[in-house]
């Protein structure tokens, strides 16, 4: 069996991570490497890994650098395929085998979006119909709480964008993977459970990064005519939702994205028009997570 490296990014979720690791190890899979990149947790996560899971590779990061920390794990991964997980998600039994099988069927598959399902903190799972098929579908993005990434594709196109910190990082990577001629597929029935809980929606972090990074996606990848129209649309939406939700956060994010647009322009590349046309970018998403 091909080697798989699981890369988990942890940040102050010691108990959830411990629970996930126990579940993964209980499957008794061979040829498996587990890498935990710790984004400067302060709750004892690093100590827990060292003491309870000495065989797991721990990569500590000095300060919280957001999703860019994943790239350290991706680089270190020695497997043919990488399973990307959050510190509060874990694959169901059989998921990793299904992922390998799918990757091995077609070398043009760059990313496999796994079937990420919610599990609340008391362990309740929504009751679903049994998947009758493992038939893949071709899609344009994936959920970073549970996805497979071909290591050679990471070597070719890179990982998550360092400048984003949080949010839209999956879309950014997806665009580069698709543009390099690889496919992203959704694999039903290859389940990853994610302990989803409503965050503090008063937090301004979410709307800030969602808005700023969408500006940067547009500046990095959109052809000029689409770029102009999309920027106009985004400016309008930022002003409109600032008025509707009585907040300055969208204007702050817009100003930040424009002021620091050099960071996006440095990575600007030509993307095939059909990819941009097929992308399902919901512009309004950034404005629906606050309050």
């Amino acid at each position: 069996m091909a080697k798989v490296s699981i890369v988990i990014l942890s940040y102050n979720r010691k108990e959830e991570l411990k629970d996930s690791l126990k579940k993964i190890l209980s499957y008794g899979l061979k040829n498996l490497e587990i890498i935990v990149v710790d984004n400067a947790s302060t709750d004892g996560t690093k100590e827990m890994i060292k003491n309870d899971f000495p065989l797991i590779k721990l990569i500590p990061v000095d300060k919280n650098i957001g999703v860019a920390a994943y790239n350290k794990g991706f680089k270190k991964a020695s497997g043919d395929y990488i399973l990307i997980l959050d510190d509060d998600s874990y694959p169901d039994k059989g998921t990793i085998e299904k992922m390998i099988k799918t990757f091995e069927k077609d070398e043009k598959i760059g990313i496999i979006a796994l079937d990420v399902r919610s599990e609340d903190y008391s362990g309740n799972k929504e009751k679903f119909s049994e998947e009758k098929t493992n038939k893949i579908s071709y899609i344009m993005g994936f959920n970073g709480a549970g996805a497979g990434l071909r290591k050679s594709v990471f070597n070719e196109v890179g990982g998550y964008p360092d400048e984003f910190f949080l949010y839209w990082n999956e879309m950014d990577l997806s665009i580069r993977v698709l543009n390099a001629g690889y496919k992203i597929v959704w694999l039903p029935g290859a389940v990853v459970y994610h302990k989803f809980s409503p965050k503090n929606r008063e937090s301004e972090r979410g709307p800030f990064f969602y808005t700023r990074n969408l500006f940067w996606i547009i500046l990095k990848y959109f052809p000029l005519n689409r770029l102009i129209l999309s920027i106009i649309k985004m400016i309008y939406l930022c002003i409109y939702f600032s008025l509707e939700q009585r907040t300055l956060i969208y204007l702050k994010a817009m100003t930040n994205s424009i002021k620091n647009s050099k960071k996006a322009f440095k990575k600007r590349m030509k993307v095939k028009r059909e990819i941009i046309n097929k992308l399902k970018i919901t512009y309004k998403l950034a404005f629906t997570i606050f309050r």
Partner: peptide, 12 residues
């Protein structure tokens, strides 16, 4: 269903 507490942003 809305993804925040108040429903802001779902007027459409």
């Amino acid at each position: 269903p809305v993804s925040n507490f108040s429903g802001a942003g779902f007027l459409n």
